[in-house]
Write a protein that binds this DNA or RNA. Structure first.
Lengths: 209, 209
DNA sequence: AAAAACTAATTAAACGTTTGTTTAGTATTA
DNA sequence: TAATACTAAACAAACGTTTAATTAGTTTTT
């Protein structure tokens, strides 16, 4: 689907407002005002508020697939290095689209059986299969230990990242980074999270205990 | 604050509906119908929908404080064992009140500066100070390594638990536990999570790398 | 002990807003 | 001139809250 400037403007405004106020907490009038368009344009272009939400999802998920897959094809890297690449790739993806990620997390909590929830579920399954393959490689190479619960590993990856993203204002306060410009803080966040998750993965994948 | 039977009924119905549909996604009429009380009783008893939400929070947070503190006073346990106790205590607490936890997570995302968000923030800070003390003990005893980022440690604890709780239906499906009765599944979840987080904490606190 | 006065609990109905969506008409563009 | 873009106004439904009236239970007065 291709959108003109005005439609793009509506979509990104909707994304921002849905992220900070929730779907039900955002009125179509809020979106129209903030986007600087007439109220009726939203129904005109998207049909309904619900379909506008779906447009937000469509935009964000369109180029999301197949991002990990190239990792597996690179045979030159050690299994652990591949896992590190995957972790950084995931962190990048989430930090790049924080607003959308918030929406996704909330939708996952609320609508257990909506079309959107099913889509999230499918993406997760696909990603899990990829990670499983990657870990199997490492196990066959004798570099990873046996009995690794991939599901819990993913849960920690997703959970830690989500938690840090949604409570970054808290992190900013506690670590006295309130005066830091936001782009610099984002870099700091990424670096910290990357280091943390990598040492965590290394421990869970390689150490016997 | 003490509540009569009817008020309790309203509060727990509200908790359930807020958890599954969100605050804005739940109407006062929904709550009244589900709780089997007249619509006006909610305003009569609680003043407003917002104050009803606060009542839910008040109920759940009243006896939440000082739960960890006894852990620190027990001098007979090794530092790592104390951390293990803390992890299990946290898991128990979250799994006991999953519905409320969902509400809290969502509120944290949305209302960055509400009274509720501030309360959550304070609780977190207090808990972090306790964990810091606990870790310092272990470091002085030479059993924990230096340079431990307590904030990220907490983020992983909270994040992993939250993520597993909110996507437990997914976990159920992937691990083929759909036919398992719910109380048994909850026990299974608790056990899995406990093992996972403990080995994770052990790695992050003790191994040098 | 009976009657009256008072308090709290409960109800159906209505209040004024806000909601998402539609309509009917006007401007713009190709 | 035909199609598309756009607008102000109106729509009915749903919303949180309030009202006025009724019931039930307790206290006070006679």
């Amino acid at each position: 689907m291709e959108y003109n400037d005005k439609q793009q403007q509506i979509i990104s405004t909707a994304e921002k407002l849905f992220a900070s106020n929730g779907f039900d907490g955002t009125s179509v009038r809020d979106i129209a005002t903030e986007a600087g368009v007439n109220l009726a344009m939203i129904s005109y272009y998207f049909g309904s508020k619900e379909k506008l939400m779906q447009a937000v999802f469509a935009m964000r998920t369109e180029h999301m697939r197949l991002r990990f897959q190239t990792l597996l094809e690179n045979k030159d890297l050690a299994p652990l290095q591949k896992v590190y690449l995957l972790v950084d790739d995931y962190i990048d993806k989430i930090l790049e689209q924080q607003e959308f990620h918030k929406i996704m997390m909330r939708e996952q909590m609320i609508n257990k059986n909506s079309a959107i929830a099913l889509m999230i579920c499918e993406t997760k399954k696909r990603n899990m299969e990829l990670i499983k393959k990657l870990i199997n490689e490492g196990q066959k190479a004798g570099q990873f230990k046996k009995n690794i619960d991939v599901m819990l590993l993913m849960t920690t990856l997703i959970g830690t990242t989500s938690q840090l993203v949604t409570t970054q204002h808290f992190y900013r306060e506690v670590s006295n980074h309130q005066d830091m410009p936001d782009d610099e803080f984002q870099k700091h966040l990424k670096k910290k999270l990357s280091t943390h998750l990598k040492s965590l993965f290394k421990a869970l994948l390689t150490y016997e205990n």
